[in-house]
Design a protein around this nucleic acid. Structure first.
Length: 483
RNA sequence: GGCGAGGUAGCCAAGUGGUAAGGCCGGGCUCUGCAAAAGCUCUAUCGCGGGUUCGAUUCCCGCCCUCGCCUCCA
């Protein structure tokens, strides 16, 4: 395996190797399930997915753990407001999250632990910290991590202690929990009246876990006390990951994660996403505008994960075009019928694409190379300068490379016969008739039938060997809706 | 204020100490009964000012501007 990857901790690009030289074990901070995830969240998950695919295609096995945060301020507050049981509430949003992930072609993690299902592990970890003098209980029954007991605190985000503790005064006032030092953070929060029934028994009384502790406990349980890589969005560097390091390493004395991967944020039309700006989009929002999840995936990988990426509806439209184009190449090369479960294999002429991915997951470079290599190959194919062997190699390489990128293109064969979708049989019948008319060079009838199909709300697109049908809206819906 | 990232064609976005990938849009062309696709092709000297160098967009300094994080937001 030869993947080099930027590491937030050392701040350099380092070669990544599984510690046991077989299985790369990594943890991803998952979603808080209190609403639909937005496209910015998915940038992180998509990049983590690419990471995994590249590792696996490089010949290493993976163990991928991504948690579900189903107990915290937001889930509790929101479920209370809606008068729903917390578990029902989070189960529904978890299901929605899974649907979105599937639509985006994300490989499911090997383990997807939930925070409420790991309370014993969290309580145990907190106890260890108290025993070692790294945590203390307050009068109200909460437990805090004592930042001063862990001198290395701040090493990931490189904040000197002085900076950590200044500027805390305002917030401390509004915080209902009392703590010894402003930088200390909650491991266990005592139950409050507005938590409703959402509290659990602990040695320190009724309450619930703090946010950070769940990831430490679950990562350790499913990956061991020391594992290969941890990742999340950049905003998690501080405080979340900093706190995870503190808790975990204070408890175990071992290096928590050996490599830290952080994905930069997505901006929308040049601005930070926020509810007040009304530019927080979900997959559903994009679908309403006629865009597919794969188009979004393409956009999300069109920039370097280390740089903020500017999402625009123009780029979504561009993605649609590019995907169509690549799909056509696939068809022209005859398609690749073999299944490549792990993405391992001979990339043939597309090897440089994969190579770009192993260089710090350079997805934009990979896409660039994919286009230039693909174009050349198709030109040769058109000129009939491609031998059957070369065609096969190109077809397989293209298929493998697309798999590494997680891009699933619509099967052109399905589009031609249009039997896999919800096209009405009547429309399909008309289109079939029209195809026959065209074969007989009966242009008059063909044009008439096309008009009829259009009246039924469908656009018919001719191919040399068949036809495709598209609803009229989606065929024309790619203008920029932003004002 | 602290820490960090960045300013590359109309838009999105890579990259390199030796005169800039790719995609979209736009122009030209080919093919196509029409329409749509598809294929080919054209379009930038890299925020500003210095410095180092034979040579900088790429390294250093200064300036201008944008953005992120700074306690629970991917």
């Amino acid at each position: 395996m030869s993947l080099s990857l930027y590491d937030t901790f050392s701040r350099e690009v380092r070669s990544l190797q599984p510690q046991d030289s077989k299985t790369l074990r990594f943890y991803c901070c998952g979603p808080t399930v209190y609403g639909p995830a937005h496209i910015g969240n998915f940038r992180t998950f998509v990049m983590q997915d690419i990471f995994r695919r590249v590792v696996e295609a490089s010949g290493s096995a993976t163990r991928h753990v991504r948690n579900i945060t189903d107990v915290d301020d937001k889930t509790i507050r929101q479920s209370q407001e809606e008068n729903r049981a917390l578990s029902d509430f989070t189960a529904a949003w978890t299901a929605r999250f899974h649907e979105d992930c599937t639509a985006l072609g994300l490989l499911p993690p090997h383990v997807e632990p939930s925070a409420v299902e790991h309370l014993p592990e969290q309580i145990d970890l907190i106890s260890r910290l108290i025993d070692k003098g790294h945590a203390y209980r307050t009068d109200d029954g909460s437990v805090y991590f004592d930042v001063r007991s862990f001198p290395a605190y701040g090493k990931l985000s490189r904040l000197a202690e002085r900076e950590i503790t200044t500027g805390e005064v305002d917030r401390e006032q509004s915080d209902e929990y009392d703590r010894a030092s402003a930088a200390d953070f909650a491991l266990w929060k005592a139950a409050r009246p507005d938590d409703g029934p959402n509290h659990w028994t602990s040695p320190w009384g009724q309450g619930r876990p703090g946010w950070h502790i769940e990831c430490s406990a679950m990562a350790m349980k499913h990956l061991g006390e020391s594992f290969d890589l941890h990742s999340g969005g950049v905003d998690l560097v501080f405080p979340h990951h900093e706190n995870e390091i503190a808790q975990s390493e204070a408890a175990t004395g071992k290096t928590f994660a050996h490599h830290w991967l952080h994905i930069a944020h997505l901006t929308v039309e040049g601005r930070k996403m926020s509810k007040s700006l009304g530019n927080l989009y979900t997959l559903e929002d994009l679908a309403e505008r006629g865009h597919t999840p794969m188009e979004l995936r393409y956009v999300l990988i069109s920039g370097s994960y280390r740089q903020p990426l500017n999402f625009t509806f123009d780029s979504l439209a561009a993605a649609k075009k590019s995907l169509t184009r690549i799909g056509n190449w696939q068809r022209r090369l005859g398609g690749d019928t073999e299944i490549h479960s792990t993405g391992k294999g001979d990339f043939g002429p597309f090897a440089p694409v994969f190579e770009a991915l192993t260089n710090d997951l350079n997805t934009p470079e990979a896409i660039g190379r994919l286009h230039s290599i693909g174009r050349k190959i198709i030109a040769k194919a058109e000129a009939e300068e491609l031998s059957p062997t070369e065609t096969k190699a190109a077809s397989k390489g293209l298929s493998l490379v697309l798999q590494c990128l997680g891009l699933v293109l619509p099967d052109p064969k399905n589009a031609i016969s249009s039997d896999a979708d919800e096209t009405p049989a009547s429309v399909r019948g008309l289109a079939a008739e029209r195809f026959e008319a065209r074969q007989n060079r009966n242009w008059e009838l063909a044009d008439k039938l096309r008009d009829q199909i259009r009246e039924a709300g469908w656009t018919v697109l001719d191919n040399p060997d068949g036809f495709a049908l598209e609803p009229v809206e989606t065929a024309t819906e790619f203008t920029n809706h932003q004002s």
